[in-house]
Every structure is written in C-alpha cells, then in structure tokens.
Measured scan of single mutants.
Amino acid sequence: HNLTITQGKLFFHYNPKLCLSEIHKMEEVSGTKGRQERNDIALKTNGDQASCENELLKFSYIRTSFDKILLRWEPYWPPDFRDLLGFMLFYKEAPYQNVTEFDGQDACGSNSWTVVDIDPPLRSNDPKSQNHPGWLMRGLKPWTQYAIFVKTLVTFSDERRTYGAKSDIIYVQTDATNPSVPLDPISVSNSSSQIILKWKPPSDPNGNITHYLVFWERQAEDSELFELDYCLKGLKLPSRTWSPPFESEDSQKHNQSEYEDSAGECCSCPKTDSQILKELEESSFRKTFEDYLHNVVFVPRKTSSGTGAEDPRPSRKRRSLGDVGNVTVAVPTVAAFPNTSSTSVPTSPEEHRPFEKVVNKESLVISGLRHFTGYRIELQACNQDTPEERCSVAAYVSARTMPEAKADDIVGPVTHEIFENNVVHLMWQEPKEPNGLIVLYEVSYRRYGDEELHLCVSRKHFALERGCRLRGLSPGNYSVRIRATSLAGNGSWTEPTYFYVTDYLDVPSNIA
C-alpha cells in the first residue's frame, strides 16, 4: 500500500525493539523526510534493546553428524571492536523451508527459537588472519532439518551509529543413524509349514526405512522333555500350542467401542483428552525405555581390526524358502538304536541362519518350516543398504507352526516275539517326523474274553527296548493296539495285532 503524509511529521519514542533503520525507511515511504526535528525521533529510546544489523554474515563451514552440527561463519568486528559482546545463534526444527525470524513471537518477546549466546573469538592483530567464530550444536535429532541463523550482539553506541551483522536463515539436516526397533511384532501360524509375521514401523526411523531383515531359527525343545518319565503317576503330560491366527481386521481397528449394538453396526467412541494424553505418555515412556535398553543392555560386537582377528559373527547367506525346513542338525536320541526319531534339535552355532529381506511392506510369510516346531524370529529395521547396512537392534518374537495331521501315527506293522515265561516283546517304529517329539506310547492289549488293559511306555523305555515287553501273560489269544502321544496330543491307534500265548508248562520236552 502507498502511504503519503502531505502535512505533519513523524514522532517515535520509547520503541526499544524498533531499529532506527526501520524508522528511516518509514520517513522515505511516507514522504516526511526532512520535516522531523532532532528530538522527534529519539536516538536513545528507539532500538536500544534490539540488534540492528546492516551487514550480512556468511557461514564459512558446515559439518553434520547424526546428532551434531558444527558451524563456522566469517569474522565480524565493528569499528570499535570492544562493542562486540558476542553472537546469538538461533535454531529450531523446520520440516519445511518457510521459516521466518519472527515465527511464534508474542507480545512478551518470546519466540519459538532456541538461542545460544556465543563469546567472540580472540581478536588477531592481523586483519587478514582473524579467527572464524563458530559453535557445535549438540543433542539434535537424527535425520531432522533445522533452520539456523546467527547475528551479532553489540553494545549501545553513544554516537548512535547503527552497526551489526546478521546471516540469512539456512537449512541444515542432520545425518541418518540406526533406527529404533520395529514396533509390535506379531507372529502367527496359518499352516503346519508357515508363519505369518506382521509389525509396525519404528517410532524413530532416523532416516528413510529402506528394508527390513527377518531372521528365523528353529528352537530346540526343553531338555526336561527328553529326561522326564511322563508315565509316572502324578506327572502331567506336557503340551505345546501353536500360535493362533490373526483376529479379523475389524476387531483390530483402534479407537473402536468394545460393545456392539445388537441391531447392527455401531460407531466408534472418540477417545477423551485424558485417554489420548495417557497414550502419549505411555508411548514416550516406551521410547525412553527402549533407548535405555539399547544403550545399557546391548553391547556392540567388536569388529575385526587390522591384526587379522576374525569377526566372530557368522556370515549372512541367503537361502531359498524351500530350504528352511531342514535348518537344524538332527541327532538321534540314543545312538545305539537307529530307529528312534531325530527330534532332539541342538543347533550348531556355526550354522548360517536363513533370512529374508523385506522391502516396502511390514509383513512376511515364512514358508518351508517344520510342522509343530518353535521358531525364534528376529526382526531388524534398516535405513541404508549400501555401502553397508545400517540397521536397528533386533526385536524378537516366537511362534510355533501348526501340527501336521497323521504325523504322530505309527507307520509300519507292530511285530512281536514270544519268549519263555510268557513274555512277549512288542516292537514298532517311532514316527519319523512327529509333531514336536514323542513323549510316550500307549499300549492297549486284551486277552479274548477279558477286559482291555493299558500300559504306558516312556520315551526312554522305548529307546532301550525298541518297544516294550509284556510279562506274566496268561495263555490265550491276544490283540494289541499302540498309539503315540506327542507334544500336540495323541496320534491314531494302530491296526490290531494278534498273537497267541501258550502255557509254557505244557511245552513238550526233548528229553527222552
């Protein structure tokens, strides 16, 4: 807008934040220059609390790290170098490059900038070799853009010569660093050979998330399962459950009422301010606690030095998902009996873990797994792929695949051998790939016309006998059925096997 004052003059007093240069501009645009008398524009009460600059400061050096910015700028000295009290560095987070010096300023003089007072450097006698002032900004957020400017702080001049310097606002972004852990990993099994893994992005990506790394490792069953005799009275049979499938998407929606109208769909109840505040506090606490764990609990591995020492970490090797089922080394339970199943799973520490690289999504279907087997899954978020990966501390989750139908069934015939004193040795093959492992066998036998009897055969007993022995049988026709019990439950009964026990007292003698 054009402003013209045809008559009258300007009068400025007691404006401590208004620089004289701005008042002189007002004289020019209003056409009143030359009308004012000496005392109409006070030299001592206008701009006496402001830094009124008329020179431009330029930054000469900028260096960044993930949490620091090192700045240096060209030296500046007023005509009387004693008038320079120091520099004021202003900075704040700036997602967009549209910041002005006066953003967030209120009537009390406060604003949204963080201000650092910096002492002037030592003055050199040689004007050509003056030290460049600077400042190291610490405690910054990774991968965050900051708006920065600097200006001088000078003393009051009796001659009211307006001098000083100020830089333009520059924008500097800190470097990326390792992201925080992925949030809320959930693993479920939808079949006997697959596990579905879902997660949420890290709360602090500290860069642009480029991919996720998912490692999985087959877990050995508890050692007590191999040692305890679950045929003993009072000892509860062990059981394991597989990871249940995901709930429906509708039930997972946030901010939804727990109660549904019987007449149909209901609208979600909005969260109160107290609920939102509580969630923010919980989120802040979780982030602080995660940072504490990362800094205190997890110790970084030592990389190899120039002395030739090897990095103890196993090298990563990509495998196809079809090879995942046989990740671990199978060892027989008892070496003397080769027909026992290889369900003991000690994992070799030198073995390469299978892994998958996930790009542009937060889910993965891990296939080719062994049925009813526990897996430990390790999830890392990465925001750099080359020249070397920059990934987060791992988040861990466990899951067990679903049982395989008929995996616990005894394959092959049940054979028998009759000894003296009416002892019958029953023999059968253990299931080759049971659900988890076989903890015991149930032997059901009966003599024709009598009630059915049951015998429990422990895992250890089966390994020693290759089956079991029935003792003290009365003469007669017998039928026997056997079924295995694994961590997933009972298998199917075998087809009945028949044998006849004679009275050993009636056996004919070869003595003449």
Rank of each mutant, 00 (worst) to 15 (best):
R353S: 11
E378V: 12
K236Q: 14
N208P: 14
K357E: 08
E389W: 03
D385W: 15
R459Q: 14
R319M: 06
K271C: 02
E310V: 03
R319P: 04
P475E: 05
C391A: 02
L232C: 15
S243I: 11
P238R: 11
S223V: 07
I366F: 13
S315E: 11
G322N: 13
G412N: 11
H294N: 04
S348P: 08
F355K: 12
L225P: 05
Y259L: 03
L379K: 00
E495S: 07
P314F: 15
H211I: 04
D222E: 03
F298S: 07
E452T: 10
Q380L: 11
G489M: 03
D222M: 06
A335L: 11
S474Q: 10
S363P: 09
S479V: 11
E442C: 08
T303M: 10
R318M: 12
R481K: 14
L453P: 03
Y375H: 07
L277N: 14
R370T: 15
S268P: 05
G489L: 05
S341D: 07
Y396S: 11
L473P: 02
V443A: 07
V414T: 05
S344K: 10
T340F: 11
S305N: 10
D409Q: 12
G476T: 00
G412L: 08
H371T: 11
E452R: 12
H425P: 01
S509M: 10
T241G: 08
A335G: 09
S344L: 07
L437Q: 06
E290S: 04
E221S: 13
S305I: 11
K460V: 08
V443K: 00
T401S: 04
E265T: 13
V359H: 06
P354Y: 14
V397R: 15
P300Y: 03
E227C: 14
T241R: 06
C456R: 02
T272F: 14
S257E: 14
S341Q: 12
E404W: 11
T340Y: 09
C266Q: 10
V359E: 04
D250V: 04
T386L: 02
A336V: 09
Y500D: 04
P332A: 15
E389G: 04
E249V: 09
R301M: 03
W242T: 13
L213Q: 12
L505C: 04
D222A: 10
P205H: 05
P238V: 04
E451P: 11
C267I: 15
Y441N: 01
E362Y: 05
S458G: 14
E442L: 09
E258F: 15
S342A: 11
S257A: 10
S315P: 10
L277Y: 14
S274H: 12
F298K: 01
P245D: 11
A394K: 15
D261V: 15
C456N: 01
P431V: 11
E217S: 12
P354N: 07
S363G: 10
E258V: 05
E290N: 13
F246P: 08
R240C: 08
L232K: 05
P300L: 04
S248I: 15
G472K: 07
V359N: 08
S284Y: 03
R353K: 10
Q219W: 06
Y448P: 10
L440F: 15
Q429F: 15
G467A: 07
C266I: 14
E265S: 09
P403K: 11
D250L: 14
D250H: 09
H425Y: 14
E356A: 10
I377M: 06
P205C: 04
N383G: 05
L464K: 04
S223H: 10
R313D: 01
S305G: 06
F226Y: 09
N255R: 03
Y230Q: 13
S304D: 12
S268W: 03
P300G: 09
E420W: 02
V397I: 01
S315A: 14
V414P: 06
A381V: 03
F285G: 03
V299A: 15
D409W: 11
K460S: 10
L232R: 13
L437D: 13
R481D: 00
A463G: 10
V358W: 14
N326W: 06
T373A: 09
R466H: 08
V214H: 00
T494I: 05
H371Y: 12
A336R: 15
F337E: 12
V411I: 05
N208S: 11
Y448D: 01
E420R: 13
Q219P: 08
E282D: 05
Y212R: 00
K361D: 03
G476A: 02
L379A: 08
H425A: 13
T303F: 14
A263K: 03
G472H: 08
R316I: 07
G476V: 01
T303W: 07
S305L: 10
S315G: 11
S486G: 08
K406D: 06
D311H: 12
P431F: 02
Y292T: 09
D291E: 10
L280S: 03
F289C: 03
P431T: 02
P354M: 14
R286Y: 13
D222Y: 13
A463Q: 08
T241D: 13
R376P: 01
N326R: 13
S315I: 12
A330H: 10
N360Q: 08
A336Q: 15
E388Q: 10
E378A: 10
V414L: 09
V501H: 05
C267W: 01
C456I: 02
S474D: 06
L505F: 11
R370E: 15
N477W: 08
S474P: 07
C266T: 14
L440H: 12
S268I: 15
P403I: 13
P434K: 04
Q275D: 12
V443H: 00
Y441R: 00
P413K: 09
S474N: 14
C231Q: 01
H461K: 09
D229E: 12
R316H: 14
D506T: 06
I377D: 00
N477Q: 06
Y441A: 01
S486Y: 00
L321E: 11
D385V: 10
